[in-house]
Each structure stands twice: as structure tokens, then as C-alpha cells.
Amino acid sequence: MSDTSTAAPQLPIEGELCTVAIGNFRTEAGADIAETAIAFQRWGVFKGDPHGQNNVLLLEHALTGDANAANWWDAVIGPGKALDTDVWCVVCTNALGSCYGSTGPASTHPDGNAWGSRFPAISIRDQVNAEAALLETIGITRVHAVLGGSMGGARTLEWTLLHPERVGFALVLAVSARASAWQIGIQSAQISSITRDPDWHGGDYHGTGRSPDAGLAAARRIAHLTYRGELEIDERFGTSAQSGENPLGPFRADDQRFAVQSYLEHQGKKLTERFDASCYVVLTEALNRHDVGRDRGGLNKALHSITVPTMVVGVDTDILYPYHQQEHLSRNLGNLLAMSKLSSPVGHDAFLVEARQMDRILRQFITLTEHYAAEQADSPRNDC
């Protein structure tokens, strides 16, 4: 959108899911997605210049998250909370490729059927560019800050590289600068669990009356072990048997389980009730392709080129994105605002469940951005 007027952006009713058409979208790899739409929600009143200084905080959700950030981050979003909606306008989109309002493989193709296997592979960069197109369509070309964890952290990092002129500050939580071989391996195993399910049908199971639920549940069981800390899982379950079952009998049986098996099966079943398997595959593949150094002269050169003041947060017990990966970010970012450690036995998911620590970290981030912005405004200009 070339119009740079200061008209108020087109925002939905607070908390209401809104889906916006952004037209045909071309992916980084050269595929086309016709009639693309991105869904989003907002909380708080917009204030300021949609093309300059304003109060927009753009939140990025994790892999199976959605635009309803006030639900999955309820402890920190709202009046008087760390992301104070009396002060800030909090906006959260649903990622391209997901199944919560934005266009993805489970969405309806222009021909009336599901996209299915016709939906192309996408990258984190594609998700960010689609999100940028959404913001431009509703009349916002700059935000005060972008914040996100896990896949949302990867999107946040890419925002600082793809559209630095549109971002005032960034908060990157629990992610790395690129997918490691271990991450690609564990994520590829999850994809394989789904695509080897007999009900996968090459990704074209929509409309068949069946879906690869067994594969998706298995993928979630694998993933969940990387989301939670080893110490927490062992402390909760140890080698205990599931109530009424005996996993130590003379023959192994599927219905005679350790307690941790029952827990993981429950997590898998919950996901099949709310998420689409093909979307899980597309989003997981996007994480496999995450590499901020690709076509930018390598990892450290790309990180050093980041001019957006960025705060980095890691979890000390994170198995999926170990803390040393956030330390690598902090050492190489071109404009490090701050570094913080979240200490928790929970592991990767700590940024979603450790409410007290996240409250402190987010308040620190907001304060730092305000002080930094004030210092920049007060700095004398050299007009010579």
C-alpha cells in the first residue's frame, strides 16, 4: 500500500477474530497461494501514527498457537498486566499455513475444495511477509515492538531482518538463529509420523471422512517431550504405572502403560481434537527451513546486521532450543537490548507457563524500549 496517510488503522472489535484478504501470495521458493487471507485479533486502543511512533505490540504465536493471545498468554495481557492493554494495542496474527483462520492446507482452495497437497511448502520468511502484507492492508506500516517465542521467536527474528524499518524493538524468546541438525531430525520424525499414517492420502484426506489422527497424535507425543523439561517429566511420573495397569507383566501390551505413556497419549489426543495434521506438517517444515543466515552471507553476518534493538530470552532447561543457542544470539546480534534467562524445570514451554517470571521479563522489556526511545528522541542531531 503506497498511501502513507495517518488515517486510523482498520482494526476489529477488541478480542474479535478478523480475517483479511491480502491477495495472491508468492512464497520465497516461488510457489503461488491464490486468494490468501490472514486472521488476527487485537486488544487495547490504537494510539499514535500508524506509519511512525505508536503503541502497537505485535505478538507471534508458537507452532500450534492461534491469534487469541489473550487466551494462551492470559497472565500477561490485559489492563494493568505486563502487556497493559490500557496503554498498548496488542495485535496477534494467525500464521500463514495454520488452521485458525489464516490460509493453509486445510483452507478452501478457490476451486471449492481443500488446498490439501496443493498448498506449497512455506518458510518463516513467508509467514512474516504475509503478516507484513496484512498490517499494510489494514493501514499499519510500523509497530513499536514484535514479540514471540519458539516459532513466534523465529518470526520475530525474521521481522528484524526482512522489515527493520517497520519494527521499533524485538523480543525473541526460546529460539535459535537457525534450525540445528538435531531440531530438523526430531521435527522430521514428527512429520514422518503423520505422512506414514494410512489416512494421510498424500495430504488429500480432507473430505474423505478420515484424517491421520494416529500420526498426528504420535507427532505430538514426540514433540511434547521436547517442550517439557526432563526433570519435570521425571519428577511427575518417574517409573509409576498408570492407575489400574501393569506395564511390568510377562508380555508387553498397549493397554498396560507407564503413567508417562498415558500422559503423552492424552496430549496427543487433545491436539487431534483441535488441530489439522496437514497444517502441522507445513508449519513444522517451516521450522526446519528456519535459517536467518541463508542468502545473507551466513549466520553471524546476518545477526550482526540486525539494527533493531533486540532483547533475547532463553530457558535454562530447554531441550528443544537449548540456552546456548540464545547465548549465541546475544553474542552476535548487531543491536542487543538485553539478555535474560528464564529458570524453570518446565523446559521449553516455560515462556508460556511461568507467569511470574514472564511478567517480570516483559515489564523489563517494555521499560527498556521506552527508555531507549526517549534517549533517541533526546539525542542531539548532528546537522553539519
Rank of each mutant, 00 (worst) to 15 (best):
41 Q>V: 05
41 Q>G: 09
41 Q>K: 15
42 R>Y: 05
42 R>P: 01
42 R>F: 03
43 W>C: 04
43 W>V: 00
43 W>G: 01
43 W>P: 00
43 W>Q: 12
44 G>M: 08
44 G>P: 00
44 G>N: 09
45 V>K: 15
45 V>F: 03
45 V>N: 15
46 F>N: 07
46 F>T: 05
46 F>E: 13
47 K>E: 13
47 K>V: 10
47 K>N: 14
47 K>I: 03
47 K>G: 09
47 K>H: 13
47 K>P: 02
48 G>H: 10
48 G>D: 11
49 D>N: 15
49 D>H: 09
49 D>C: 05
50 P>K: 02
50 P>Q: 04
50 P>W: 04
51 H>C: 02
51 H>L: 03
51 H>N: 12
51 H>V: 01
52 G>Y: 08
52 G>M: 11
53 Q>D: 14
53 Q>M: 03
54 N>S: 12
55 N>T: 10
55 N>S: 10
55 N>P: 04
55 N>R: 08
55 N>G: 04
56 V>L: 06
56 V>H: 04
56 V>I: 15
56 V>E: 02
57 L>V: 14
57 L>M: 15
57 L>P: 01
57 L>K: 10
58 L>W: 15
59 L>H: 01
59 L>P: 00
59 L>E: 05
59 L>D: 01
59 L>F: 12
60 E>V: 06
60 E>L: 09
60 E>G: 07
61 H>C: 04
61 H>N: 14
62 A>C: 05
62 A>G: 14
63 L>W: 13
63 L>Y: 12
63 L>P: 03
63 L>R: 11
63 L>C: 10
63 L>G: 08
64 T>L: 02
64 T>G: 11
64 T>S: 14
64 T>N: 08
65 G>T: 09
66 D>Q: 13
66 D>W: 10
66 D>V: 11
66 D>A: 14
66 D>S: 14
67 A>S: 13
67 A>R: 03
67 A>P: 03
67 A>G: 15
68 N>P: 00
68 N>C: 07
68 N>K: 14
68 N>A: 14
69 A>G: 08
69 A>H: 11
69 A>E: 04
70 A>I: 10
70 A>D: 08
